[in-house]
């Protein structure tokens, strides 16, 4: 465009052009609005996971066998079409990619904003920004670190001498009965809920989903999702501490498997 416009001289840019221009559609991710769009899309995927994961974990309240069967059902997903655990792995890989992109875009856009923001000593008065929106760069990394601990503890069993593979009820009650671990879960999941409160609202803007007729509902959705996740996820450490989820150190799944093995021996 633009024939008659003379080039405007301006101060030096704070963001340099990418050194290598990637082909379309990867080039979209090389722009800030494109990155933010990817952050929103991956945010939706992560949110979907967080909600399903929380609801799935409610099987803990049905008992050790029920949550064990639920876990097995996840591994059996899609077995009519694919070998066992394949569909679960496909979803896991999708989540890992979403998570990596979410963190990378967050990191790169945060750096861009910090470079663009000239601070004066006078301080800033916040009017619209809330606690959640201002702490995204804190709650995000807290969730990331917690997630690593959570996997190491309950998936890989690094920290739990009594870890029994495939017995979530036993592992959860063993881990969360320790007070420091319960506190860690409570703090991290509160951070997650705060992150979701701003994230859910924010992603509509980033993805360009905006219609004045429905806009007021976005805050309710954000508060509702954050609240449900908060209550659901905090219930686990609290009820383990209260002794509602407790298998007295016995692993029912292990006993069942032993039983089955003995029967085979006969």
């Amino acid at each position: 465009m633009a024939q008659a416009i003379t080039r405007v001289s301006a101060p030096p840019p704070v963001r340099s052009e990418p050194k290598i221009k990637l082909p379309w559609p990867l080039s979209i991710y090389q722009t800030a609005v494109g990155k933010k769009w990817v952050m929103g899309l991956t945010g939706v995927a992560l949110l979907g996971f967080i909600v399903v994961h929380m609801i799935g974990n409610l099987h803990l309240y049905e008992g050790p066998l029920e949550i064990h069967e639920y876990a097995e059902t996840l591994r059996d997903l899609g077995t009519k079409l694919l070998p066992r655990t394949w569909l679960l792995w496909i979803m896991r890989i999708g989540l890992i990619i979403a998570f990596a992109l979410h963190i990378h875009s967050a990191y790169s856009l945060s750096r861009m904003s910090i470079a663009a923001d000239q601070r004066y000593p006078g301080g800033r008065n916040y009017i619209a920004a809330n606690f959640a929106s201002r702490t995204m760069r804190w709650t995000g990394p807290i969730i990331g670190l917690y997630l690593f601990y959570h996997l190491a503890d309950l998936t890989w069993g690094w920290f739990n001498p009594d870890f029994v593979r495939g017995d979530p009820y036993h592992n959860v009650s063993e881990s969360l009965s320790s007070i420091p671990v319960a506190i860690l879960y409570i703090v991290a999941n509160t951070a997650l809920a705060v992150h979701i409160f701003h994230g859910t609202w924010s992603m509509f803007q980033s993805l360009g989903v905006n219609s004045p007729r429905y806009n007021h509902l976005r805050r309710y959705l954000a508060a509702g999702l954050a609240g449900i996740i908060l209550v659901g996820n905090l219930s686990f450490p609290i009820f383990v501490q209260a002794g509602v989820i407790d298998d007295d150190g016995r692993s029912i799944v292990e006993e069942l498997q032993h039983g089955a093995a003995e029967e085979e021996d006969h």
């Binding site: 990155k35 856009l109 945060s110 929106s133 701003h198 803007q205």
Partner: peptide, 18 residues
């Protein structure tokens, strides 16, 4: 063109609403 010029000079929106 306008968005990309903006990105060269300014930060990235996080939807604070300020």
């Amino acid at each position: 063109a306008m968005v990309e010029t903006m990105e060269a000079f300014f930060g990235s929106c996080t939807n604070h609403g300020e």
